[in-house]
Computed example of a mutant assay.
Amino acid sequence: MENQLNISSSPHIRSKVTSGNIMLMVVIALLPASAFGVYNFGVPALLMLISTTAAAVLTEFIYEKLMHKKVTVGDFSAVVTGLLLGLNMPPTAPLWMGALGSVFGILIVKQLFGGLGQNFMNPALGARCFLLLSFTGPMTSFVYDGITGPTPLAYVKEGALDQVNTMDMLIGNIPGTIGETSVIAIVIGAIFLILMGVIDLRIPGTYIVTFVIFVGIFGHVAHPEIGFFDPQYITAHLCGGGLMLGAWFMATDYVTSPITKKGQYVYGIVLGLLTGLFRIFGGSAEGVSYAIIISNLLVPLIEKVTLPKPFGKGGEK
C-alpha cells in the first residue's frame, strides 16, 4: 500500500491554454480593425470604444461583487464584449448609448444566465440588437467626411451598383460602424487567430461560401438587371456591412457556436442562408446581427442532430 493513487474527476488531460489566453488573443486580433476605425472616424470612435469597453468591465465587476461571486474581469471576456460592441457602433452615436449597450450585454445576456460559458447568445450582438430596436435612428445614422448619407450596402440593396466603389469598401473609406468598414483590417486579425489556433475555417468559411451562393442566385431574382453571380454585386455584399466582422469574430464565439464538426458546417450554412435572406428580401440592408443571434438559438438543436452516436451495443436509441 505504499503507492497510493490520487483519484480525481475528469478531465484528466489538461491544457495550459485558458479562457483568458484565448480572449486576450481575440483582443489583439481586433486591434487592426479598432486602429483603422479610430483613424477613419477620429476621436469620437476612440471615445466610443473606451466607453463600451469600460462599461462592460465595470458592469461585470460590480455585479460579481454584489452577488459575492468570483470576479472574472481578468479573463478578458468582458473586454472582448465591450470592444466588439464598440466596433459595431456608429461613431456619431452618444457615448451613453454605447455604455448602456454594454450594461445590457454583460448583465442581461451574460451574467443573469450564469456568466461566461452559460450565455445563450453572443453578448455583444445581443446588446447591438437591443440598441437597434431601442434607438433605431442614432444606430442607423452614418456620417463620413462630415456628410450624412446611406452606406454602400444600402445602395447595393437597391441594385445601384454604379454608386458603389468596391475598392473603397475593401480598404474602408466608407461610412459605417467603427469596426466594419475595413475588410483588410478585419482579415489581418482573422489570420492572426487562425495562425494561433483560436479559430479555424469551418464556420466562417461555410458561412461566407453559403452567403455567396445565395446572393449570387437570388440577387438576380431581386434585381433582374443584375446577372447571376455578378462579381461586383457579390464583392460589394462581402465588403459591406458587418459580414466579415461577424463571420470571423462573432459567429466563431466558442460559447454560442456548435462544438461538433458537422454542427459547425450546419451552423455556417444556416448563417449564410439567414444573412442572405435578410439582406436581399428583408427591410434592412444589413442582417448579420440577427442572423447570428437566431443561429445561436438554434445551436442546441444543431448539436442534438449532429452529435456522434455512441459506439457499442445499446449506444444508439
Rank of each mutant, 00 (worst) to 15 (best):
E60I: 00
E303V: 10
L245D: 07
E158M: 13
E316H: 13
A99I: 09
G189V: 01
F249D: 06
D145P: 00
M169H: 02
L66T: 11
N21S: 14
L170D: 10
A222W: 02
M121D: 11
V187R: 00
T260V: 09
G241I: 04
S295I: 05
G268D: 02
S15H: 12
P152S: 03
E286H: 08
A247C: 09
L66E: 12
T275Q: 06
P90M: 00
T18H: 09
L30R: 01
P231V: 00
I208Y: 05
M67R: 15
Q4V: 12
T151Y: 07
H12E: 12
G227R: 00
A154V: 13
I226W: 08
P258G: 09
I188Q: 07
T166H: 03
L30G: 04
A247T: 07
S9N: 15
G86S: 05
Y254D: 13
I171D: 06
G315P: 02
A78C: 10
P308F: 10
A35V: 15
M67C: 13
I203F: 12
L46A: 15
L245S: 06
Q232D: 11
Y39W: 14
L95E: 02
V143H: 09
G176C: 07
M89A: 04
I184D: 00
G115Y: 06
Y267G: 04
A236F: 02
H237C: 14
N122I: 05
S10W: 10
K261D: 13
L193G: 05
A35F: 14
V221L: 14
T181F: 01
L131W: 03
V103N: 11
F61C: 10
V143M: 06
Q163T: 01
V266E: 04
D200C: 03
D168M: 08
